[in-house]
């Protein structure tokens, strides 16, 4: 890897993968639809959602999000983003034109951010914003 940027020495580099190589900065999109399932997986989680296209046909999209570990640590569970939940995703479509996108912003239909959908409320000890 190039991995030797920024400071010129062989520093440890955080680079999981190149999102800008995966998704197209010239294909921004906004999707509204319902959750089919949430793959609670690493290194990144994937939300599958049904979106109606202009002809009324339902198309399934896959939305790439972050590692779910800390959401779980904060009290989020799979039930916090259940099938059928209405969500809005702003992001960018995959370079290959498939129905995949990175979710820059993922909100519930009522505008709440994903992180604020915690069912049990955030635990006190971990220092997160309330």
């Amino acid at each position: 890897m190039a991995g030797l940027g920024l400071l010129g020495a062989a520093l440890p580099v955080w680079a999981h993968h190149a999102f800008a190589a995966e998704f197209d900065q010239n294909k921004p999109l906004k999707l509204k639809g319902t959750v089919v399932k949430w793959e609670v997986t690493n290194p990144h989680s994937w939300i599958h959602m049904n979106v109606k296209d202009d002809d009324g046909k339902v198309v399934e999209w896959m939305i790439e999000g972050g590692s779910p570990n800390n959401l779980y640590r904060l009290g989020f569970t799979k039930d916090s983003l259940p099938p059928g939940a209405e969500i809005v995703v702003e992001g960018y479509q995959a370079k290959d034109g498939s129905t995949r996108a990175v979710g820059k912003n993922v909100t519930f239909a009522d505008g709440r951010k994903l992180f604020l959908g915690l069912q049990n409320g955030p635990p006190e000890a971990q220092g997160e914003k309330k």
Binding site: Q25, N26, H44, S67, N70, K104, N105, F115
Partner: peptide
């Protein structure tokens, strides 16, 4: 996220929405 729409920098999920911002952890 403080990034400019339509730029390569903007093509990423928001860390804070997944509780991954370092400020959201001890």
């Amino acid at each position: 996220r403080p990034t400019e729409p339509g730029t390569a920098d903007d093509v990423h999920y928001d860390f804070s929405q997944f509780g991954l911002d370092r400020g959201q952890a001890k």
